[in-house]
Design a binder for these strands. Structure first.
Length: 561
DNA sequence: GCCGTTTTCGGCCCGACTGTTTTCAGTCG
C-alpha cells in the first residue's frame, strides 16, 4: 500500500493491527472466538472482518488484490537501507524493476542515477545497501550489541566536555535481538564529539555525521555493529533518553497522551502551548507530568504498561540482585569445561546461595550425557562436596532428555534421588505440533520433573522454535506445579518475553537458568532476568529468587506424599 | 483504518540527515 501511495494513516492502522496480532500472548483464534479481539483497541470492524476471513479461508481478498498490483518480490527491495516505498515505486514504474535481480541489472547499466529525484550518489548508496544486505545477517544478539555499546561508551567517556552517557534504544530495553546500538551523550559541542566518534579507530564505515547525530559501522571482536551516537544538551537529557529508548510504539502513545493534554513531547522536552519547557532533564519528570508512574525501560513496548502506569499497577520487576541461585548448568562430566567445585565457587562469588548441577542424560551422546550409573556417582560426589564446601549449597540435578517417543531418559527411581530435575527436548524438534506438545505435556505429569528447560528450543538467527502449543504448555505447568525455564543464554532467551508474560499471568513459576557450560557462563544471568522482566515478572514469579528451603518445598509439593 | 470528556467527521507523533534541490522530499528511527 505504501508503494501504491495509498493513505498513510490507513497504512498506519494496518501496521498497528499487525503489531497487535504479533504481540498477542494468546492464540488469535481463541481471541476471536471469545470476542476479545473485537474489544482490542486499534482493531476495528474492517480488520476484524479480515482476520475472520483469514482464520476461516486462509487468505484475505483485499491482500490478494494488492498482490495482483504489486509483485511480492518487489517488497524485498524495501529491505535495502536507503530505499523506501517511493524509491521502489519509481524503480518499478520507470525501469520495470520487479526484483533484486532487476535492480542490480539497471544499476549496472547506470539507469538508476538518471531517474528524477535520484542521482549518482543515491544510486551508489543503493548499490552499497544491496551489498550490505547480502552480507549482513540482519539483527545481532543482545550480548554482541552490549559489547559494541561498551566499546563506544568507554571511548566517549574519555572525551572532554561529556556530562552523561546513556545507552538507549533496544539495548536499554534488553530486547532479544538488536538492529542498531543507540548511545546518548549530554554535551555542548556536539559536532566535535560526533567527529571524534566517526573518526575513532574501531569505526569501519561512516554512514552519517551531523552536529547532533553520528552513525557508523563499528567493528567489535564478534561482528560489525551499526552504532548511532546522539548528542543533546543536558537540560534535554531525560527527554532524549526517553525518546531514544523507545520503543517507537511506546513513544507514539506518550505523544498522544501529551497531545490530549495540550502539550508537545519531543526529544528536547515536554512543552506547553506557549512552547515553554515543563520537563526534560529527567525521564521521571516527563512520565510524572504526563500522569504516569515511571515505567522501567524493559516494559516500554506498548503492551499494556501505559495503562498500568496510569492506574498505579506497574509490577515491581525482578532484579539481578534478587537471584539467589542458578538451576541449570553443566560440568566437565558432560559437555561443560569446569568441575562441580569450580562451578560452585564461581557461583558463590556471584553471591548465590545454591546451584543445581544439571548435566545431560545418556541419550545426549554428543554431549557426553551421563549414564544412570554415572549420575548415581555424581549424586554421591555432590553430597560429599556439600560437606566440605562453605557458603553455598550444591543441588544434585539433571537435564534429562525427553526422548522422541515421549519417554524420559531416566526412570523415576533415579530421579527421586535428585534434588531438582529439569527436562528438555534435544531431538525430533522438527516434528509436528501435536507431537512436540504432547511430549512436553506428558513430561510435566511426572511428579519428579520440576522444570521444562528452553521450552521452545529456538536458537536466535539459527533455528526456529519448535511448533509447540505454548498456551497448552503454560496451562499444564500451572496445573502440575512445574516451573518453566527462562534460559538466559543470549542465543536462546527461551521462554521469550511475551511467553513469560503469559506464564506470569497464569501463575506459573519461572526458573531463570544460565545453562552455563563453564564458570563464565554463569554471568549470563542478567539476560534471563531482563527477559523475565520484559515479561512483567516480579520476584514472586521467579523460582530462583526463593530461599533454598522454599525451592525444596516446591519440589516436595509435586512428589508423592 | 481507527477513534471520540472539543469531534460520528476530521483528525491521526516528531525531528535529523542526506541528496537533489533552490525550498524540499524521502528515509529513518
Amino acid at each position: 500500500m505504501e508503494i501504491l501511495a495509498e493513505d498513510r494513516f490507513r497504512i498506519n492502522s494496518y501496521r498497528k493491527v499487525a503489531r497487535l496480532i504479533r504481540d498477542m500472548p494468546t492464540d488469535i483464534e481463541e481471541m476471536l472466538s471469545t470476542g476479545k479481539l473485537a474489544k482490542t483497541p486499534g482493531i476495528g470492524k474492517s480488520s476484524l472482518a479480515k482476520i475472520e476471513e483469514f482464520v476461516t479461508k486462509g487468505t484475505i481478498t483485499a491482500h490478494q488484490q494488492l498482490l495482483k498490483k504489486i509483485p511480492s518480490e518487489l517488497l524485498e527491495l524495501l529491505k535495502i537501507p536507503g530505499v523506501g516505498p517511493k524509491g521502489v515505486k519509481a524503480l518499478y514504474e520507470n525501469l520495470q524493476v520487479k526484483s533484486m535481480k532487476d535492480l542490480k541489472k539497471v544499476l549496472s547499466k547506470n539507469l538508476v542515477a538518471e531517474l528524477p529525484g535520484f542521482g549518482e550518489k543515491k544510486a551508489a548508496a543503493i548499490a552499497k545497501g544491496i551489498e550490505f544486505l547480502e552480507k549482513s545477517t540482519g539483527r545481532i544478539l543482545l550480548d554482541e550489541a552490549l559489547e559494541a555499546s561498551e566499546l563506544v561508551g568507554e571511548f566517549l567517556e574519555k572525551l572532554s566536555g561529556i556530562k552523561k552517557i546513556q545507552p538507549a534504544g533496544s539495548v536499554r530495553r534488553m530486547a532479544e535481538t538488536i538492529g542498531d546500538v543507540d548511545i546518548l551523550v549530554a554535551a555542548k559541542d556536539g559536532k566535535r564529539i560526533i567527529q571524534a566518534f566517526t573518526g575513532a579507530e574501531f569505526v569501519r564505515e561512516v554512514i552519517a555525521s551531523g552536529p547532533t547525530k553520528g552513525s557508523a559501522i563499528v567493528q567489535t571482536e564478534a561482528c560489525p555493529v551499526h552504532v548511532d551516537v546522539r548528542v543533546v544538551p543536558k537540560e534535554s537529557f531525560g527527554a532524549a533518553a526517553q525518546y531514544f529508548t523507545g520503543s517507537k510504539q511506546h513513544n507514539v502513545r506518550l505523544r498522544e497522551i501529551a497531545l490530549k493534554a495540550k502539550l508537545k513531547l519531543n526529544e528536547y522536552g515536554l512543552f506547553d502551548k506557549k512552547d515553554k519547557i515543563i520537563a526534560g532533564s529527567s525521564e521521571e519528570e516527563i512520565y510524572e507530568r504526563l500522569g504516569l508512574d515511571y515505567i522501567d525501560p524493559l516494559l516500554r513496548e506498548d503492551r499494556g504498561e501505559i495503562e498500568a502506569a496510569q492506574n498505579h499497577k506497574l509490577p515491581k520487576l525482578v532484579q539481578l540482585k534478587d537471584i539467589k541461585g542458578d538451576l541449570h548448568m553443566h560440568t566437565n562430566a558432560s559437555d561443560g569445561d569446569n568441575s562441580i567445585k569450580e562451578m560452585a565457587e564461581a557461583a558463590r562469588q556471584l553471591g548465590y546461595k545454591y546451584i543445581c548441577i544439571t548435566d545431560h542424560s545418556k541419550s545426549s551422546a554428543i554431549a557426553n550425557g551421563l549414564s544412570a550409573k554415572r549420575l548415581a556417582n555424581q549424586i554421591k560426589q555432590i553430597h560429599k562436596l556439600n560437606e566440605k564446601i562453605k557458603g553455598i549449597r550444591i543441588l544434585a540435578g539433571s537435564e534429562v532428555d525427553i526422548l522422541a517417543n515421549g519417554s524420559i531418559d531416566f526412570d523415576n527411581k533415579l530421579l527421586a534421588d535428585l534434588d531438582f530435575v529439569i527436562v528438555s527436548i534435544h531431538s525430533g524438534m522438527a516434528s509436528s505440533r501435536e507431537k512436540v506438545t504432547t511430549r512436553t505435556l506428558k513430561a510435566m505429569d511426572n511428579p519428579y520433573i520440576n522444570c521444562i528447560a528452553h521450552p521452545t528450543g529456538r536458537l536466535l538467527g539459527q533455528r526456529e522454535p519448535m511448533d509447540i502449543d505454548i498456551a497448552a504448555v503454560i496451562k499444564q505447568a500451572a496445573e502440575t506445579g512445574t516451573a518453566l525455564e527462562v534460559n538466559a543464554n543470549p542465543w536462546r532467551l527461551d521462554l521469550k518475553d511475551i511467553h513469560c508474560k503469559m506464564a506470569v499471568e497464569a501463575g506459573v513459576k519461572l526458573a531463570i537458568g544460565t545453562d552455563a557450560h563453564n564458570t563464565e557462563g554463569l554471568w549470563l544471568m542478567e539476560y534471563g532476568v531482563a527477559t523475565a522482566g520484559r515479561g512483567w515478572a516480579t520476584n514472586a514469579d521467579v523460582l530462583n529468587t526463593l530461599t533454598l528451603s522454599k525451592i525444596q518445598k516446591f519440589v516436595k509439593n509435586k512428589r508423592p506424599k
